[in-house]
Design a protein around this nucleic acid. Structure first.
Length: 575
RNA sequence: GCGCCAGUAGCUCAAUGGAUAGAGCGUUGGUCUACGAAACCAAAGGCUACAGGUUCGAAUCCUGUCUGGCGCACCA
């Protein structure tokens, strides 16, 4: 199954090349040809502004260049006409070819839009990566949905994809978690307890405490915080995995940051950076002279003690001040283990690493890329799509999202409200760099006029017509697709054939929201009006045409189902 | 103060440097004794924040201004 725009790109280049060797166009290096989709129907199915782009290179009028390209355009089976209009070249698809694509889609079945462009390439997607201190919150869900959808889209392009979750179960926050659980445990036993300052106040710790009492009674009253930390961590991971699974996100690997200490790679990374001359010990960082920054109290206090270990970040990228890699306490900052982690990932042989982060981590991403690059690794293999925050509002008021204070909306709460399909869709349906405002009240109301149902209903209608046809003893098997000559039937076929191109585009731009927009505004919006008008089983529709139309709707069903699958949504047979 | 991202219909958002900037929601008015009306049709709604520039062509690229978000830790 070909992707037309890709094919046209190649054919157009060929046409230019042929024109050049025939002497109809002067010699010049052929630039990337852009193929686009005209908004107006009378401009054809596809168009290229190539002639205008080449006008300067060729020192000829666009119209003349267009003429030459058309004259030398290779023969294809899918084009009916190639036209020239005011600088553009317009391509029209042949009806018989379009009709035949219905058979192609049916033959491909659930393999439709599975491509092999990147066959043999390995991709790892890292997302969510929340430390196990509490339930998954909506901010993390956005990254998770983006990551999982990108994984699905890359699989469709032939990538071998692994999903990975990176976490840290050591450190101050986890200690605080253990102490918080211990306090809740004692509280539930009716004993005196000191709830730690800045402890985790969420109700989920009561649940875990209750569970713990059920299993262990009061035998842990004198146990240390680590016992509680271990128990809390295990319970929370069970919760996290279950919540994510509800929206179709599952991980292949859970990678513990601690393992990078256990195998020595954190310190090896530091040594390697030191060998590059990028490391020094000092009380203060080196910084640009024009940096008029007043040192804050924390930093002054810290400098009273031992020197810290700094990296010459100013040599690696455009920053004004070097960065700490090891604190004066001897503990590394995130930069060091993160760099070790990315090197670990690259050493595992992935061709591409996608790491989904919130925009507040942009500096971190740049630091790590710079450090990985400084050590001689190819940091261009690391792609970091950033997403803006999700604000949850309820009745116009913003719900604060602090895990520690226990004021947050969890993934489970969201799924309970609007269902897993709506969570997937809405988290996906806006461009990552746009801030997302998720109004709970609105989301709850949306059950009736939700794009989710609009898209899914297209599938329901296809399933339904198949059911009814079978009841009446009409089957599509020997339907003749060449009867699908109505412009609306052809329009639907055209739309179905766009899916592979959308996948290609979304992968190319790491823009998973494109599939959600297309599913709603293009696929479903094309499908429903046509379905209303192009009836298959009315008595005035001849049987052979009915069979052909059943084939068309069977093909539509395949494409809709595949699209929903790529978005991690279900394709119901009935509502 | 410095840096990054954003600013498009009343609201939430789309739009590879391409032809007349599109959807949904909301508003207004129409459609069902036939494959599920969770649907369809139609109308209204825009100086793409503002000012310059680049070019055959700009919502898109560049410069400046304004507004909002996020960073600017010996937190991650």
């Amino acid at each position: 199954m070909i992707r037309i725009s890709q094919a046209l790109k190649i054919e157009t280049s060929k046409a230019i090349e042929t024109a050049q060797s025939a002497g109809d166009l002067p010699a010049f290096e052929i630039p990337e040809i852009s193929i686009n989709r005209p908004k107006q129907a009378d401009h054809g199915d596809y168009a290229t502004p190539a002639a205008m782009q080449l006008a300067r290179l060729a020192r000829m009028k666009p119209d003349t260049i267009a003429e030459m390209i058309i004259n030398h355009f290779p023969d294809t089976d899918y084009l009916r006409a190639i036209e020239r209009t005011s600088g553009f070249i317009n391509f029209r698809l042949a009806d018989h070819w379009l009709q035949q694509q219905v058979e192609e889609i049916l033959a491909a079945g659930s393999d439709f839009a599975k491509m092999d462009d990147y066959a043999g390439k390995r991709l790892q997607v890292e997302c969510v990566s929340a430390n196990p201190t509490g339930p998954i919150t909506v901010g993390r869900v956005r990254g998770g949905v983006m990551g999982d959808t990108l994984a699905r889209l890359h699989r469709a392009m032939g990538y071998d994809v692994e999903m990975e979750y990176y976490f840290n179960n050591a450190g101050k926050q986890m200690r605080l978690l253990g102490e918080s659980l211990k306090a809740r445990y004692l509280e539930r036993l009716g004993q005196e307890s000191d709830f730690p300052e800045d402890g985790y106040q969420g109700d989920y710790l009561y649940d875990i405490a209750d569970q713990l009492i059920e299993e262990q009674g009061n035998s842990l009253a004198d146990a240390d915080w680590e016992t509680f930390k271990d128990y809390a961590e295990a319970s929370i991971f069970v919760m996290i995995k279950a919540s994510l699974k509800r929206i179709g996100i599952e991980f292949d690997v859970f990678f513990n940051e601690n393992s990078l200490y256990d195998d020595g790679s954190v310190w090896e990374t530091l040594d390697a950076l030191r060998e590059k001359g990028l490391i020094y010990e000092a009380l203060h960082p080196e910084q640009d002279e024009d940096l008029d920054e007043r040192p804050d109290q924390e930093e002054l206090d810290a400098t009273q003690g031992e020197p810290a270990t700094w990296i010459r970040m100013r040599q690696l990228r455009d920053v004004k001040k070097d960065c700490v890699v090891v604190k004066s306490t001897g503990e590394p900052t995130y930069r060091l283990p993160d760099t070790a982690y990315h090197i670990n990932k690259l050493d595992r042989g992935f061709d591409l690493l996608i790491n989904i982060l919130g925009t507040d981590h942009i500096e971190e991403a740049k630091d790590v890329a710079a450090m990985v690059g400084a050590l001689g690794y190819d940091s261009s293999k690391i792609k970091v799509p950033l997403h803006q925050f999700v604000t949850i509002t309820e009745g116009g008021k913003t719900v604060r999202m602090s895990t520690r204070k226990g004021e947050f909306v969890t993934l489970d709460e969201l799924v309970n409200d609007v269902g897993p399909n709506a969570v997937r869709y809405f988290m996906l349906a806006r461009s990552p760099e746009s801030h997302m405002d998720f109004d709970l009240e609105l989301a709850r109301k949306q059950s009736n006029e939700n794009p989710v149902y609009y898209i899914q209903n297209a599938h329901v209608r296809c399933a339904s017509i198949e059911r009814v046809a079978a009841e009446r003893g009409v089957f599509a098997d020997d339907g003749d697709v060449s009867l699908l000559a109505d412009p609306r039937e052809l329009a639907l076929i055209r739309k179905l054939l766009e899916l592979p191109e959308i996948i290609d585009l979304a992968v190319d731009e790491l823009a998973p929201h494109k599939i959600a927009f297309w599913a709603h505004e293009e696929l479903a919006r094309t499908f429903h009006p046509i379905y209303e008008e192009i009836r298959a089983l009315y008595s005035d529709v001849p049987e052979d045409l009915a069979k052909a139309r059943l084939k068309l709707y069977a093909a539509a069903r395949i494409v809709i189902r595949r699209t929903l699958e790529l978005m991690g949504m279900s394709a119901p047979d009935q509502m």
